[in-house]
Amino acid sequence: MTSPTETLTPASPRAETDTPGVRPRPGKRRRRIRPQTLTYVLLVLGVVATLLPFAWMLLGSFKTQGELLRRPITWWPEDPTLENYSQWFTSLHIDTFFFNSLLVAVVTVLGNLLFCSMVGYVLAKMDFPGKKFLFLIVMVTLMVPGVVTFVPLFVMVSKLGLVNTYPALFLPFLAGPLGVFLMRQFMTGIPDSIIEAARIDGASELRIFTRVVMPLCGPPLATLGILTFLTSWNNFLWPLVAAQSQDKYTLPVALSLFSTGQDATNYGLLLAGSVLVITPIILLFIMLQRYFIQSVAATGIK
């Protein structure tokens, strides 16, 4: 389903911050406090309901198969066990899947940061024939559904003999349209005078790009990095087709194959696997939540 990466309108990398809401009106104490309490109650209920599946997942991962199958269902594990986790670490090679996921995500992020900034720079700050056309093509592809390129992509990768290799997992995602859009949007806002001054001083374009422009691009790079990492980490359909042996599986691929294979009813194992898949990204999210939320506001809003 949709990830926060689809964007359609020009964005300035302006942050959505903790701006105060509508100012509380002075006076009328009684009328002010009651609706607020109600708002809090509703929000707390909402957040509990939203997070309940995660709590359920975590608690379930410590239960034994017997307890998971018992009805009526139980909340707290009666006989907490680490068996579900130890199985992942001993016989199921989760370290390999983790390494693969991380490798693909890191390479994809680095590729996008580099290639998209380079194109973003020339689209924002240089004049050349074909510029408008290039930008138009990039923008149009933002709307292309994944299934359109899926079949020919697979045919091509198999003709190149890349099926079940690392390059097959990251090459198709190294240079995406979203990054170009983000970087160009931000770089357009950098004053021309800075760049002109550097040109007059005799700096080459490469030098201007690396020493003048890139150091100013922290915010969009952070946004792009986060969005790309998230998309890659959770990416599922392509690696499912492109990775065909266990040593190339990423975490979601491994989990989905175990959940439909012979372990399909080993609920404890699957819940523990789910916890292991989402824990790194949730920790990252909580640490960087401000930037995550900025990135959504930046890509989604004018």
């Binding site: 389903m1 990830s3 926060p4 939203t50 599946p53 995660f54 359920w56 997942m57 379930g60 998230l230 980490w233 959770n234 599922f236 975490l251 979601p252 989990l255 989905s256 959940s259 699957l270 819940l271 696997g273 789910s274 916890v275 898949v277 989402i278 990204i281 949730i282 999210f285 995550f292």
Partner: peptide, 12 residues
Amino acid sequence: PVVTSIVAIAVV
């Protein structure tokens, strides 16, 4: 829920 993997979500 936005940041979590659909596969993990599906299991639970």
